[in-house]
């Protein structure tokens, strides 16, 4: 499974309140989340997310269990997230909705070309290739299917 996109660099400890604030959760309209993603962190960030690979510091997605956070990133056009570590609920949520994650610590400049080969466990950023911590076979299978719901429907 291969993903590529332009790097959007973010710091460590990005919490789910920063990804999508609590005041926008009471809706099923995903365009609301797309519009307000990262609003309190940087109001201009949303525009740069289409086709992006987020490259963040450690502990990305900490805080609440709100699945609207990875959904907001996905509907905003984020193709994958790379970070040295993820908060565990965010990690499961992202895989479950078909948003690929890669655990790696890499240097990031905004706009760098990022290529990820999840099956091979490799990432290339600005021409430099390195290993990522491999995902479990179960997670790779889920991502390949596009998330838990389609994986579930395929199996039954």
């Amino acid at each position: 499974m291969r993903i590529e996109g332009h790097a959007v660099c973010l710091p460590a400890d990005i919490d789910t309140d920063q990804i999508i604030a609590g005041r926008y959760l009471r809706t099923k309209d995903r365009s609301v989340w797309k519009r307000h993603v990262f609003e309190d962190l940087d109001a201009d960030l949303a525009e740069r997310l289409d086709g992006a690979v987020i490259v963040a510091g450690k502990n990305f997605g900490c805080g609440s269990s709100r699945e609207q956070a990875p959904v907001a990133l996905k509907v905003a056009g984020v193709r994958a997230i790379v970070a040295p570590s993820f908060a565990r609920i965010f990690f499961r949520n992202a895989i479950n909705i078909g948003l690929p994650l890669a655990e790696a610590e890499i240097l990031c400049n905004d706009g760098d070309r990022v290529e990820i080969d999840l099956s091979a466990g490799m990432i290339t950023i600005a021409g430099k290739t390195r290993d990522i911590r491999p995902l479990s076979p179960r997670m790779l299978e889920m991502l390949a299917a596009g998330g838990l719901v389609s994986h579930w429907r395929q199996k039954r």
Binding site: S65, E67, I89, R92, N93, N96, I97, L148, V149
Partner: peptide, 23 residues
């Protein structure tokens, strides 16, 4: 909900999950 870990106070394995896992 992330604060499901509260119930670990009873010696239960209690943990938070997202909506899709819960479904």
């Amino acid at each position: 909900d992330s604060h499901t870990c509260t119930l670990g106070a009873f010696g239960a394995f209690a943990t938070g999950v997202g909506a899709t896992d819960m479904a």
